[in-house]
């Protein structure tokens, strides 16, 4: 059981890290705003994974679940607002190119 637990733990943490890195990479590199939002989403999901893992390891599964659900709720609101902003950008210029958002320089 301990072996399973630790194996599960390590797999999940590596998976979490992978998701994290994919999320950051996506956010950094893409020129498409929707993909940037997806990147944000991935980041947050990886963090949720970390939270649950932490709860699992220390045995506070109840607390971890509560935290994870709260996090998902907040995340939904943020993503909704972000998508709304991207929608407004689209209404301005009929494109969702991230290079549009580089006006405020210097």
């Amino acid at each position: 059981m301990v072996n399973d637990m630790s194996q599960l733990f390590w797999m999940c943490s590596i998976a979490g890290f992978l998701v994290f890195i994919i999320g950051i990479y996506g956010l950094l590199v893409t020129f498409n705003l929707i993909r940037a939002i997806i990147g944000l989403e991935l980041l947050t999901k990886s963090v949720t994974l970390f939270l649950i893992l932490a709860g699992y390891v220390t045995g506070q599964t109840g607390l971890a679940q509560a935290l994870a659900i709260t996090l998902i709720v907040i995340e939904v609101v943020v993503i909704a607002i972000a998508v709304g902003i991207v929608l407004c950008v689209f209404r301005h210029n009929r494109t969702i190119d991230a290079q549009l958002l580089r006006n405020i320089k210097g």
């Binding site: 994290f20 947050t44 220390t58």
Partner: peptide, 29 residues
């Protein structure tokens, strides 16, 4: 458009901040 740009940048970096803070909370947990 400028306001949208400002808001979007704030969202992105705030999300990054969120991620960092939550990772830390997870670790502290």
């Amino acid at each position: 458009l400028n306001a949208l740009e400002g808001a979007f940048k704030y969202i992105v970096l705030s999300a990054l901040a969120t991620v960092l803070m939550l990772t830390s909370i997870a670790a502290l947990l």
